[in-house]
């Protein structure tokens, strides 16, 4: 479990081959001023559960890295506990597709988000991670006050978007910026009220700082459509592109 997923306070359980369920409580440090959970942590939960689901489906030879996450939010996550469900839709030679969904059990099990995570299958240099099956990953971080998400990220507003340092706390086991953090800064760059996101991970963020810049594309009756570009400034390259609809 990474520091990112510990901070997001999510537990995952493999309930059967090809199916992962997750659970997370509403956490004050992950909420917006209106009391609803921020979209970034919810996307992190979807990416985490979907990625693990796809990774387990790629064993014994390979493991996965997220290549794109598309999700639609249909209700705010206000109550909790939240249930995350991930299930494999397709396992191919090069990629794995998983359906992901998030429900608010405290709101009559209302659907909060529905999406799909696509992951590329890779063969890690030192082999894929070893897991005891069925897999159970429990967040052991003691409950208690935590810094607010934006403070924890050391987020800085810049012209048209946001910037974070590539702190070691934000890296995944492969040493690159966690996909959930990328999704989080995409949401924050777009204004923090995302209802629809399509996020393509194009290259790893290794050096930092990492910037997300939002450009409006159009206005509609359900919000503003924006293009968000993520760059690893230290590596001088675009690392992700997203299309975001936000209120």
């Amino acid at each position: 479990m990474t520091q990112v997923t510990q901070f997001m306070r999510v537990d995952l359980t493999e309930v059967e081959p090809g199916v992962i369920h997750g659970r997370a409580d509403r956490a004050e440090h992950l909420t917006k001023p209106d009391g609803a959970m921020r979209v970034g942590p919810l996307l992190t939960m979807l990416d985490y559960a979907g990625g693990l689901c796809g990774g387990l489906a790629s064993l014994p030879d390979g493991w996965v890295v997220s290549t794109n996450l598309a999700a639609r939010f249909v209700a705010p996550a206000r109550h909790g506990p939240f249930r995350i469900e991930a299930s494999v839709l397709r396992v191919g030679r090069n990629n794995v597709v998983t359906a992901v969904a998030l429900y608010d059990e405290g709101a009559d099990d209302a659907l909060v988000a529905s999406g799909v995570l696509t992951s590329a299958v890779l063969v890690p240099e030192n082999g894929p991670p070893q897991w005891e099956r069925p897999l159970r990953l429990v967040n052991l971080t003691p409950s208690g006050p935590q810094p607010d998400l934006t403070e924890w990220l050391r987020l800085r507003a810049i012209d048209g978007g946001v910037e974070i340092p590539l702190d070691d706390r934000f890296r995944n086991p492969w040493g690159i910026l966690h996909g959930g953090v990328v999704a989080t800064i995409v949401d924050l760059a777009a204004g923090g009220n995302t209802t629809d996101v399509v996020l393509h991970f194009l290259a790893p963020n290794r050096i930092g700082p990492v910037q997300a810049i939002a450009t409006p594309v159009g206005e509609r009756s359900d919000g503003t459509v924006q293009r968000v570009e993520v760059r690893d400034i230290g590596a001088d390259r675009v690392t992700a592109v997203a299309i975001v609809t936000s209120l």
């Binding site: 696509t118 194009l202 290259a203 594309v217 206005e219 509609r220 609809t245």
Partner: peptide, 25 residues
């Protein structure tokens, strides 16, 4: 094709529409 997403932001009722594609990766 693995996936395709489309978000409409305007309308076109006549003439021609032009699609401009570029490689991201």
């Amino acid at each position: 094709t693995a996936d395709l997403t489309l978000h409409m932001t305007g309308r076109a009722a006549n003439g021609e529409v032009e699609a401009r594609a570029r490689v991201l990766r």
